[in-house]
Design a protein around this nucleic acid. Structure first.
Lengths: 197, 197
DNA sequence: ATGAATTAGTCGCGAAACGCGACTAATGTC
DNA sequence: GACATTAGTCGCGTTTCGCGACTAATTCAT
């Protein structure tokens, strides 16, 4: 889901991405982190610069150039959103200013395409987790279901996790083993997680 | 290879990426295209925005924010470079300002990673070309050799080219068939070019 | 002429990766 | 004790991949 804020009354669209103008002397990375904290009421688990947009479609503020950042929070943290901000489903968004629409699409595409190389998903989990939890995160970010056996095979081939000796029995069903994120640095030809079904 | 220009005398490094400051009222896409034309003496076959850099490492001009663009020209066109600009091998570069070093690395990585989905290579070839020419472009951009049979298999699987009925006999050896870029829009599950060996 | 050299293009096999249904395992519930 | 529920694995048929070896068409040297 995407966090949107109410737009000023004069805009045609009623919602916008959270944004702020760059203050002289500040770095955009710092500014983006501050904006995320302010919009969420808490610090996100990951903030990452994605792309810059500077074409004819102008930003609502009239700015020539916009730099898009991705910030991720887990569902629980997302509940504590402050002010007039509200979460919207990515597949069902209200009208947005054209450039923001493009930025959002770019961010989502970029996120999904880098998901196999970058350990983004682990930022949304506690340090110890079950493989089912991990798979659910990937399914959420990719927007589609994955096959359990195939997911685990890719995962082990990528040497990203190692088992702990703890087990979690969460209500009914067989207890799940807990894993931690522990990428093995394969010196040559390391491979990311490949997904398919 | 990368086109660098001489830095002002006061800088520690002697070379820099071509750059200019954004003039109010201009779009960065337009400005980038102009800069490329001016640096090269001719229009590049492709100009593409890649990423923005705004961390602590400052641009030589002191600017807070830098937006990196990729411009590609074929070897022949590159000969006509004007002024004090000079081509340098990507694997053997002179010292650059830190942010520019990072920008360059980002651009090259991004170029290589998107090469399988985006028809970048075709911008560097005439509209009619041989498959060996195409493979050489990919090898140049990826910085490694590819296996001929595998390359052609991936290429045909991606439905990117179609044969013409023309043949080129270029000196010795068997004449090569000429192809044109003609991507088939497979409605579902289109796949890019995959490389390996 | 004839054969070596050169470049283009294809075949096919062994290995690896993938998709996926079906299986076993361990727990709670009725 | 049967059954539902969740975790985890196995294995088989198919596709993809890496790559050496092959055929094809031309030029060059003798």
């Amino acid at each position: 889901m995407v966090l949107l804020v109410r737009a000023p009354a004069k805009s045609r669209e009623r919602w916008q991405l959270p944004w702020r103008s760059l203050r002289p002397g500040e770095t955009i990375d710092d500014e983006a982190a501050k904006l995320a904290r302010k919009s969420l009421g808490t610090a996100p688990s990951l903030v990452e610069q994605v792309a810059a947009f500077g074409d004819k479609r102008r930003h609502p503020s009239g700015a020539e150039l916009s730099v898009a950042f991705l910030a991720l929070v887990d569902e629980e943290t997302g509940e504590g959103v402050v002010g007039d901000a509200m979460w919207h489903a990515v597949e069902d968004l209200p009208p947005l200013p054209p450039r923001q629409r493009a930025m959002l699409e770019g961010v989502v595409t970029s996120l999904r395409s880098r998901l196999d190389q970058s350990p983004i998903a682990f930022h949304l989990l506690p340090s110890i987790f079950t493989l089912t939890q991990l798979q659910e995160i990937y399914e959420l970010l990719l927007g589609r279901r994955l096959h359990k056996a195939s997911f685990r095979r890719s995962l082990h081939a990528a040497w990203l996790v190692e088992p702990t000796d703890e087990w979690r029995s969460e209500g009914r069903g067989r207890p799940a083993q807990l894993f931690r994120y522990a990428p093995k640095k394969r010196r040559s030809g390391r491979r990311g997680v490949r997904f398919g079904a």
